[in-house]
Computed example of a mutant assay.
Amino acid sequence: MWSRLIWFQLRVPRFAFITWLAVRDRLSTGHRTAQWGQAQYCLYCGEPDETRDHLFFACPYTFTLWLKVTGNLFGMDPDPDWDTTITRLLTGHYDRLTFILLRLVLQVTVYYIWRERNERLHNHVSKPVEHIARLVDKTVRNRITSTRYYLRPRLQGLMQRWFGAHDT
């Protein structure tokens, strides 16, 4: 059930909410706003049909971000297809720490992709993918630190797993 990806103990409510909307395909993407007569296209790559599936992670910009922030957490190369990504998260066999990190990085990444998209749409300001990747990394590290993981036996090693996923 997809709810396991959204509603878990270490979630951040604003990230979980945006991810919940994305999973339910209820974000106001270009595909949906076209029904209201608004022009639609991907603000990252110019694709004429901005759907949820394109935005997360079929777009070259967002897939590059996804590759950077997941590191080796999946144990295999991530897929740009939204449904495949969600299925892998739900059916994959991950250890506890990896599963926590995968859910957290999914939520943080979806949030920052949506936020950057809206910045581009409303303020005409864009950031390079490396900047967004640093924001995601810092947010995940801050969330891990705020859990006081080192005092909780079930979470010990969480930060080490995060850093280990990004050693290249």
Rank of each mutant, 00 (worst) to 15 (best):
R96C: 04
T98A: 13
T87N: 12
Y44Q: 11
E130Y: 00
F163P: 00
T62A: 07
D167K: 14
E47S: 14
L97S: 05
P78K: 08
P78I: 06
L55E: 02
S146P: 05
G75I: 04
R148K: 15
T19E: 01
H131V: 10
Q35C: 01
H124Q: 14
Q9V: 03
C59E: 04
I144D: 06
V129P: 00
Y61C: 05
Y150R: 13
T139V: 02
R26E: 08
D83T: 09
R24S: 07
L90E: 12
L67D: 14
A58L: 10
Q156P: 00
H122C: 12
W162E: 04
R88K: 10
A22K: 10
L65P: 01
G75W: 10
R154K: 13
N123P: 01
W162R: 02
Y41I: 00
N142D: 15
I18N: 08
T84D: 10
N72F: 05
L55S: 07
Q160M: 09
Q40G: 12
L106V: 02
D81W: 08
R88V: 03
G92L: 06
A165V: 06
Q160G: 07
T33L: 09
T33M: 09
Y41Q: 15
C59F: 03
T87R: 15
F57W: 15
H93V: 10
E116Q: 09
T64W: 00
I18M: 11
D79H: 13
I100T: 12
K138W: 03
G75Y: 07
G30Y: 04
K127F: 09
E130D: 14
G37Q: 06
S146M: 13
T139D: 09
Y111D: 07
H122N: 11
H166C: 02
M76W: 09
H31D: 15
R96Y: 10
D53A: 15
G37L: 04
I113Y: 03
D83L: 10
T29K: 06
H124E: 13
W162L: 01
Q160N: 13
L67M: 12
D167C: 07
R154I: 04
F63Q: 11
W2L: 07
L90V: 06
C42P: 01
Y149F: 14
Y94W: 12
R152W: 05
Y94T: 06
V12G: 05
F56E: 03
D49H: 11
Y94L: 08
V69M: 08
Y149Q: 14
F63E: 04
I132R: 06
T19L: 14
R14V: 08
E47G: 04
W162I: 02
G71W: 11
G71I: 02
N118D: 07
L65T: 03
W36Q: 11
L65E: 01
Y44T: 10
Q107N: 08
E130N: 05
T145K: 11
F15P: 01
L27E: 05
R117G: 07
L27T: 10
T109G: 01
Y41A: 13
Y41D: 04
R117H: 13
R148S: 13
F56V: 05
W20Q: 11
Q9P: 02
G92F: 09
L89Y: 05
R14G: 00
G92H: 11
L55D: 02
Y112S: 04
S28V: 05
V12M: 11
L55T: 06
V105L: 08
R32K: 12
T19W: 09
Q107T: 02
N142G: 12
H124D: 06
